[in-house]
Amino acid sequence: MEEASQGRRTEERLRQLLIRGLAGDAHAYRAFLQDLSGHLRAFLRKRLARLPNEVEDLVQESLLAIHNQRHTYDPGQPLTSWVHAIAKYKLVDLLRRRARGDLLTDPLDDADDLASSADSEAAEARRDLGKLLARLPDRHRLPIVYTKLEGLSVADAARRAGMSESAVKVGVHRGLKVLAGMVRSEAMDED
Protein backbone atom coordinates (compact mmCIF):
# COMPACT_ATOMS: atom_id res chain seq x y z
CA MET A 1 0.00 0.00 0.00
CA GLU A 2 2.66 2.45 1.09
CA GLU A 3 4.95 1.24 -1.66
CA ALA A 4 2.24 1.85 -4.19
CA SER A 5 1.62 5.42 -3.11
CA GLN A 6 5.34 6.05 -3.00
CA GLY A 7 5.48 4.73 -6.53
CA ARG A 8 2.84 7.19 -7.61
CA ARG A 9 4.72 10.04 -5.97
CA THR A 10 7.96 9.09 -7.70
CA GLU A 11 6.18 8.70 -11.02
CA GLU A 12 4.55 12.11 -10.64
CA ARG A 13 7.77 13.83 -9.56
CA LEU A 14 9.78 12.36 -12.42
CA ARG A 15 7.01 13.12 -14.87
CA GLN A 16 6.96 16.78 -13.83
CA LEU A 17 10.74 16.95 -14.14
CA LEU A 18 10.62 15.47 -17.63
CA ILE A 19 7.81 17.76 -18.75
CA ARG A 20 9.76 20.78 -17.52
CA GLY A 21 12.85 19.35 -19.19
CA LEU A 22 11.03 18.96 -22.50
CA ALA A 23 9.94 22.59 -22.22
CA GLY A 24 13.62 23.59 -22.06
CA ASP A 25 14.46 23.55 -18.32
CA ALA A 26 17.93 21.98 -18.34
CA HIS A 27 18.14 21.72 -14.54
CA ALA A 28 14.91 19.77 -14.33
CA TYR A 29 16.02 17.59 -17.21
CA ARG A 30 19.32 16.82 -15.53
CA ALA A 31 17.54 15.91 -12.28
CA PHE A 32 15.20 13.69 -14.28
CA LEU A 33 18.03 11.79 -15.97
CA GLN A 34 20.00 11.57 -12.74
CA ASP A 35 17.09 10.05 -10.83
CA LEU A 36 16.11 7.88 -13.72
CA SER A 37 19.54 6.31 -14.04
CA GLY A 38 19.15 4.88 -10.51
CA HIS A 39 15.79 3.38 -11.38
CA LEU A 40 17.04 2.03 -14.67
CA ARG A 41 20.00 0.43 -12.94
CA ALA A 42 17.74 -1.37 -10.45
CA PHE A 43 15.31 -2.36 -13.20
CA LEU A 44 18.03 -3.78 -15.44
CA ARG A 45 20.10 -5.36 -12.69
CA LYS A 46 17.11 -7.42 -11.66
CA ARG A 47 16.63 -8.62 -15.22
CA LEU A 48 20.30 -9.18 -16.02
CA ALA A 49 21.14 -11.13 -12.89
CA ARG A 50 23.38 -13.44 -14.87
CA LEU A 51 25.09 -10.70 -16.80
CA PRO A 52 26.03 -8.17 -14.09
CA ASN A 53 28.81 -6.75 -16.22
CA GLU A 54 26.34 -5.66 -18.86
CA VAL A 55 24.15 -3.63 -16.52
CA GLU A 56 25.99 -0.32 -16.58
CA ASP A 57 26.47 -0.41 -20.35
CA LEU A 58 22.77 -1.01 -20.76
CA VAL A 59 21.88 1.79 -18.32
CA GLN A 60 23.93 4.14 -20.48
CA GLU A 61 22.46 2.80 -23.70
CA SER A 62 18.95 3.26 -22.28
CA LEU A 63 19.68 6.81 -21.11
CA LEU A 64 20.98 7.70 -24.55
CA ALA A 65 17.89 6.12 -26.13
CA ILE A 66 15.55 7.96 -23.77
CA HIS A 67 17.26 11.22 -24.59
CA ASN A 68 17.22 10.61 -28.34
CA GLN A 69 13.56 9.55 -28.35
CA ARG A 70 12.30 12.03 -25.76
CA HIS A 71 10.03 13.62 -28.38
CA THR A 72 7.93 10.43 -28.34
CA TYR A 73 6.80 10.92 -24.74
CA ASP A 74 3.16 11.92 -24.53
CA PRO A 75 2.58 13.95 -21.33
CA GLY A 76 -0.75 12.18 -20.87
CA GLN A 77 0.95 8.79 -20.72
CA PRO A 78 2.29 7.15 -17.54
CA LEU A 79 6.01 7.81 -17.47
CA THR A 80 6.78 4.38 -16.03
CA SER A 81 5.36 2.50 -19.00
CA TRP A 82 7.24 4.71 -21.45
CA VAL A 83 10.57 4.32 -19.66
CA HIS A 84 10.16 0.60 -19.10
CA ALA A 85 9.16 -0.03 -22.71
CA ILE A 86 12.38 1.66 -23.85
CA ALA A 87 14.54 -0.17 -21.30
CA LYS A 88 12.94 -3.50 -22.21
CA TYR A 89 13.43 -2.81 -25.89
CA LYS A 90 17.13 -2.18 -25.30
CA LEU A 91 17.34 -5.21 -23.01
CA VAL A 92 15.72 -7.53 -25.55
CA ASP A 93 17.93 -6.06 -28.24
CA LEU A 94 21.00 -6.88 -26.14
CA LEU A 95 19.84 -10.41 -25.44
CA ARG A 96 19.01 -10.96 -29.07
CA ARG A 97 22.43 -9.70 -30.05
CA ARG A 98 23.94 -12.21 -27.71
CA ALA A 99 21.53 -14.76 -29.18
CA ARG A 100 21.22 -16.48 -25.85
CA GLY A 101 17.58 -16.53 -24.84
CA ASP A 102 18.34 -18.66 -21.78
CA LEU A 103 19.84 -15.66 -20.04
CA LEU A 104 16.40 -14.28 -19.44
CA THR A 105 16.05 -14.90 -15.73
CA ASP A 106 13.00 -12.82 -15.03
CA PRO A 107 9.71 -12.46 -16.86
CA LEU A 108 9.89 -9.16 -18.69
CA ASP A 109 6.34 -8.11 -18.19
CA ASP A 110 6.03 -7.88 -14.43
CA ALA A 111 4.79 -4.45 -13.58
CA ASP A 112 6.84 -2.94 -10.84
CA ASP A 113 6.94 0.80 -10.65
CA LEU A 114 9.76 3.26 -10.65
CA ALA A 115 9.85 3.58 -6.88
CA SER A 116 9.96 -0.10 -6.03
CA SER A 117 13.69 0.15 -6.15
CA ALA A 118 16.38 2.57 -7.06
CA ASP A 119 20.03 1.79 -7.26
CA SER A 120 22.37 4.73 -7.23
CA GLU A 121 25.53 2.69 -7.06
CA ALA A 122 27.00 2.96 -10.52
CA ALA A 123 29.40 0.27 -11.55
CA GLU A 124 32.04 1.02 -14.13
CA ALA A 125 30.70 0.84 -17.66
CA ARG A 126 32.74 -1.50 -19.83
CA ARG A 127 32.13 0.38 -23.00
CA ASP A 128 33.52 3.90 -23.07
CA LEU A 129 31.09 6.26 -24.75
CA GLY A 130 33.81 8.90 -24.71
CA LYS A 131 35.94 6.77 -27.04
CA LEU A 132 33.01 6.18 -29.36
CA LEU A 133 32.32 9.89 -29.34
CA ALA A 134 35.88 10.56 -30.46
CA ARG A 135 35.25 8.42 -33.55
CA LEU A 136 32.36 10.57 -34.78
CA PRO A 137 33.06 12.76 -37.82
CA ASP A 138 33.81 16.42 -37.02
CA ARG A 139 30.43 17.70 -38.14
CA HIS A 140 28.86 15.62 -35.35
CA ARG A 141 31.68 15.51 -32.84
CA LEU A 142 32.53 19.21 -32.59
CA PRO A 143 28.95 20.37 -31.89
CA ILE A 144 28.59 17.72 -29.17
CA VAL A 145 31.98 18.47 -27.59
CA TYR A 146 31.48 22.24 -27.63
CA THR A 147 27.85 22.49 -26.54
CA LYS A 148 27.41 19.44 -24.38
CA LEU A 149 30.82 18.74 -22.85
CA GLU A 150 32.30 22.24 -22.70
CA GLY A 151 28.94 23.92 -22.19
CA LEU A 152 29.33 26.60 -24.86
CA SER A 153 26.24 28.29 -26.25
CA VAL A 154 25.15 27.31 -29.73
CA ALA A 155 26.37 30.66 -31.07
CA ASP A 156 29.83 30.28 -29.51
CA ALA A 157 30.09 26.67 -30.62
CA ALA A 158 29.15 27.67 -34.16
CA ARG A 159 31.85 30.36 -34.20
CA ARG A 160 34.50 28.02 -32.85
CA ALA A 161 33.65 25.15 -35.17
CA GLY A 162 33.22 27.41 -38.18
CA MET A 163 29.72 26.08 -38.73
CA SER A 164 26.31 27.71 -38.90
CA GLU A 165 24.16 27.62 -35.77
CA SER A 166 21.63 25.32 -37.38
CA ALA A 167 24.44 22.98 -38.46
CA VAL A 168 25.53 22.84 -34.81
CA LYS A 169 22.04 21.97 -33.65
CA VAL A 170 21.60 19.34 -36.35
CA GLY A 171 25.08 18.01 -35.59
CA VAL A 172 24.23 17.45 -31.92
CA HIS A 173 20.92 15.80 -32.75
CA ARG A 174 22.26 13.54 -35.50
CA GLY A 175 25.52 12.87 -33.69
CA LEU A 176 23.78 11.45 -30.63
CA LYS A 177 21.73 9.19 -32.88
CA VAL A 178 24.84 8.02 -34.70
CA LEU A 179 26.42 7.41 -31.30
CA ALA A 180 23.47 5.20 -30.32
CA GLY A 181 23.90 3.33 -33.61
CA MET A 182 27.61 2.81 -32.91
CA VAL A 183 26.79 1.42 -29.48
CA ARG A 184 24.49 -1.09 -31.16
CA SER A 185 26.86 -2.23 -33.85
CA GLU A 186 29.82 -2.33 -31.48
CA ALA A 187 27.88 -4.56 -29.13
CA MET A 188 27.20 -6.81 -32.09
CA ASP A 189 30.86 -7.01 -33.04
CA GLU A 190 31.82 -8.25 -29.59
CA ASP A 191 30.12 -11.58 -30.06
Binding site: G21, G24, A26, R30, L63
Partner: peptide, 23 residues
Protein backbone atom coordinates in the same frame (compact mmCIF):
# COMPACT_ATOMS: atom_id res chain seq x y z
CA UNK B 1 32.57 7.76 -19.63
CA UNK B 2 30.82 7.38 -16.28
CA UNK B 3 27.04 7.36 -16.17
CA UNK B 4 26.95 10.63 -14.22
CA UNK B 5 29.07 12.27 -16.90
CA UNK B 6 26.74 10.95 -19.57
CA UNK B 7 23.76 12.43 -17.69
CA UNK B 8 25.53 15.78 -17.49
CA UNK B 9 26.43 15.63 -21.14
CA UNK B 10 22.90 14.78 -22.25
CA UNK B 11 21.35 17.52 -20.10
CA UNK B 12 23.83 20.27 -20.99
CA UNK B 13 22.73 22.71 -23.65
CA UNK B 14 19.49 20.85 -24.26
CA UNK B 15 16.82 23.15 -25.62
CA UNK B 16 13.06 22.72 -25.62
CA UNK B 17 11.56 19.88 -27.63
CA UNK B 18 8.88 20.71 -30.17
CA UNK B 19 5.60 19.22 -28.98
CA UNK B 20 3.41 16.97 -31.17
CA UNK B 21 6.27 15.75 -33.30
CA UNK B 22 4.70 12.31 -33.64
CA UNK B 23 1.50 13.66 -35.12
Amino acid sequence: MKTDDLVTMLATGTGPVQPNQVL
